[in-house]
Amino acid sequence: MNTGIQAPGAPRPVGRYPHARRVGELLFLSGIGPRDPATNAVPGNVQDAEGRLIGYDIELQCRSVFANVKAVLEASGARWQDLVDVTVYLTDMARDFAAYNAVWAEYFPDPDDAPCRTTLGISALPTPIAIELKCVARIATQATGGE
């Protein structure tokens, strides 16, 4: 059985899809970005007088996207430590990879305990964000019965 999950503490999806879907012990998260759940604003984005994006802070966006992933995990009954695979999309690999990698190392200080990771440089995301994560986690089932 699979169950779609909407996480109240995460930003609304930008389309018609759940934040996550559980299939057995696996939890698949839809792409999660750094938008603020309360305001829908993108942390660190700088706009000109006409509202065009002219700059952003990748470190703020990394911390925000990690917080949003954590909110979806927790709403789904999982923990940060349950992540097993993360695909990261960066809109400017040359500019942002080092800063993103440094923030990643803060959240996953021991590489042996970190999830597997793939990082891709892409030309754009559906909203004016610089990073998005696609995650898979494993939720251990609780044993039933007396042992």
Rank of each mutant, 00 (worst) to 15 (best):
S64W: 05
F66H: 05
A67G: 13
P8K: 00
T3I: 08
V136F: 08
L83V: 06
L29P: 00
T87I: 09
D82P: 07
T3S: 05
G51M: 11
P34T: 03
E74C: 00
K70E: 14
F66I: 13
A130Q: 07
P13Q: 10
A140Y: 04
M93R: 12
L120K: 05
G77Q: 11
Y89A: 04
R16D: 15
A41V: 00
L73N: 14
V88R: 08
G9V: 01
G77M: 12
L90H: 00
E25G: 13
L53E: 09
K134W: 07
R63L: 14
A75W: 02
S123E: 12
A124D: 07
A99K: 09
A10D: 02
G145L: 09
V136S: 12
P18A: 02
P18L: 00
A71N: 02
V42H: 04
A10V: 09
A140N: 10
D92L: 01
G51Y: 02
A20W: 01
I122R: 02
V84W: 13
M93N: 08
W104I: 10
N45K: 08
G24L: 05
A7E: 14
E59P: 00
K70H: 14
V65C: 02
V136I: 15
V136Q: 15
A105V: 06
V69I: 12
V86N: 04
K70F: 07
M93L: 15
D96S: 13
A114M: 13
A114Y: 10
D48T: 08
A98M: 09
V14T: 11
A102L: 10
G24Q: 02
L73Y: 14
L125I: 11
T119Q: 01
Q142C: 03
V42L: 10
P8Y: 00
T3M: 03
A99Y: 05
G55Y: 07
G33Y: 03
D96H: 13
D48A: 11
R22E: 04
G4M: 07
G146Y: 09
